[in-house]
Structures are given as structure tokens and as C-alpha cells.
């Protein structure tokens, strides 16, 4: 006979066992990458395979940095991702504010047209965007990296859904107190929408940070390359040293992991906002 205490323990086991397995599956590539980066060239290819050398082989990191200027790539990616994130937060929040609080003819139609752009595959816009950027002489330039991504339909949709949850009477109260729509947006809507803004910020940063095809397309010089291309450069070396590649990967993913660690609370709140009505 299973007592209540054991039933609770079994229920916990039923919950934590799959969660632990999922966590291992998610974390394994990361642990494997860091472990490989700390493996000496001599220990690579041994059987049975080693997760890492002992003592750890830290030289992979300076070696990786001599093969490709990873620091410069991280800097480029960081600048571009920050600029795109800030741009998207500004444009998406303003557009979302207009679509949720301002009354104008054809508002819903414009919003649906805006939304429908999400259905266009990014690959389909690649060539026209490239031609435009080239015509503007923005190739090999931060402008070419950032300007095409400053507005986002997804971000506008995400923030609009959040803004629609704010009581309409707040807007009326602000208006009758003499506030302009922008003042209401700035002093009330933005402070109340921090979870949604953080969600969009984290999403946008990571998405831009991990871009590969577009930076590859519009950059010619090495000093303008971004991190994903940098990793690829490590793999173009004559001998493929996985410890160096993984050292590069470990350095490159560090900002993303830090962002996720510090932003996960807001990210979850933002993504689940409106999912449950309490």
C-alpha cells in the first residue's frame, strides 16, 4: 500500500526525472564544448574519448585568439546586437502603442498588413535587402548590419498584446490630466511594460548576435566580421583542431549565456503575460 508520503515522493520523482533528463540533454552540448576546449591536442582522438584533459589545457583559448580576432568579432557582434535591440525596442514599442492606444482610420488593417510581413521568409528578403544596402554603400559598415533590422513585426505584435492588457482608463486618466499620448507612453506604458520590453530585448539581442548569413553577405573585411563567422574561420584552419574551435565557441556564447541568466525571469514573465487570466 502506497502511503500519502510515498505518493508525493513518487509524484516529485515523476516531475523531476524528465526535467533532469531534459536539462542534461540541453546542457550536454555546452559541457561538451567547454570540455573539448580544455582538451590538449594529444588527448584529442584518443579512445575511449576524454571529456577534457587533466590538468585542463587552457592554451586553446590564446591559440584560438591568434587564429581569428575573436575579441574583435565579439565586439562587433555586441555593438550590432545592442544597436538592433535598442532600435527594435524603440520602434516596436512606439508602433505597438499606436496600434493599441491611438485611434485612427484603418488601424486594424495596417496592423494586419504589418503582421503579415512575419510570413515572408527571411531568405526571400535577403537579396533585395543586399541590393539596397549595397546601393547605399553600407556594406562592410555597421549601418548595413543594423538599419535593415531596426523594425520588427514580431516585436510590435508582442508589445501590442502586452499593451492591450493595460486598462484603457489609464490612458483616459492621463489624457484628462493633460498628458500628451507620448507623455503617457513614456511615463506610464513603458514603466509598466518592463517584462515585455525585457523579453523583446533578450530575444532581439540573441537573434542578432547569432546571425550568420547576413553578416557573411555584407562584410568583406575581417575587421567587420561577427562571431558566427569567426567560429567558421577557426574551422577553415588547415588542421581542424576541435579544442580551438570549441574555445572560440565558449568565448562567443558567453555574452548570450550571461544575458539569459540575468534576463530569464523577465523573459518568462514577458512570454507568458496574457497566457493565463488570473
Amino acid at each position: 500500500m502506497i502511503t500519502g508520503k510515498w505518493r508525493r515522493r513518487l509524484a516529485k520523482l515523476g516531475l523531476y526525472l524528465p526535467l533532469t533528463m531534459a536539462a542534461i540533454a540541453v546542457l550536454f552540448p555546452l559541457v561538451f564544448a567547454v570540455g573539448t576546449s580544455l582538451t590538449s591536442p594529444a588527448d584529442q582522438g584518443t579512445y575511449p574519448p576524454k571529456l577534457m584533459s587533466w590538468p585542463p589545457y587552457f592554451k586553446s583559448y590564446p591559440e584560438a585568439l591568434t587564429i581569428a580576432p575573436i575579441g574583435r568579432f565579439i565586439w562587433n557582434s555586441f555593438i550590432i546586437s545592442t544597436a538592433v535591440t535598442l532600435g527594435q525596442l524603440v520602434t516596436a514599442s512606439l508602433a505597438a502603442f499606436a496600434f493599441s492606444f491611438l485611434q485612427f482610420r484603418g488601424r486594424n488593417l495596417v496592423f494586419y498588413i504589418f503582421l503579415s510581413t512575419m510570413m515572408i521568409p527571411a531568405e526571400a528578403t535577403l537579396v533585395p535587402n543586399y541590393l539596397t544596402v549595397r546601393a547605399l554603400a553600407w556594406t562592410d559598415n555597421y549601418l548595413g548590419f543594423t538599419v535593415p533590422f531596426l523594425a520588427t513585426a514580431f516585436g510590435t505584435f508582442l508589445l501590442r498584446q502586452f499593451f492591450l492588457q493595460l486598462p484603457r482608463e489609464l490612458y483616459d486618466a492621463a489624457r484628462i490630466d493633460g498628458a500628451s499620448p507620448f507623455r503617457f507612453y513614456w511615463q506610464v506604458v513603458l514603466p509598466l511594460s518592463r517584462p515585455a520590453l525585457a523579453t523583446l530585448g533578450v530575444y532581439s539581442f540573441l537573434h542578432t548576435y547569432n546571425m550568420y548569413l547576413w553578416p557573411l553577405l555584407i562584410t568583406n573585411s575581417e575587421k567587420m566580421r561577427t562571431v558566427q563567422i569567426g567560429i567558421r574561420m577557426l574551422m577553415w584552419d588547415e588542421a581542424l583542431d576541435w579544442n580551438r574551435v570549441m574555445a572560440g565557441v565558449a568565448m562567443v556564447i558567453l555574452p548570450s549565456i550571461l544575458l539569459l541568466i540575468f534576463g530569464q525571469k523577465q523573459l518568462i514573465r514577458g512570454l507568458t503575460a496574457g497566457a493565463l487570466k488570473g
Binding site: 486598462p167 483616459d172 486618466a173 493633460g178
Partner: peptide, 18 residues
């Protein structure tokens, strides 16, 4: 509304939570 010289109290209070 902001130039009518009118004050209003709402059913849901409509206080700015922040």
C-alpha cells in the same frame, strides 16, 4: 479632453500603478 478643464474619477480608479 486635456483642454476642457474637466476632472474625472473612474470606476476602476485608473491610478498609475508605477
Amino acid at each position: 479632453a486635456n483642454r476642457r478643464g474637466i476632472g474625472m474619477v473612474f470606476q476602476s480608479y485608473a491610478l498609475f500603478p508605477n
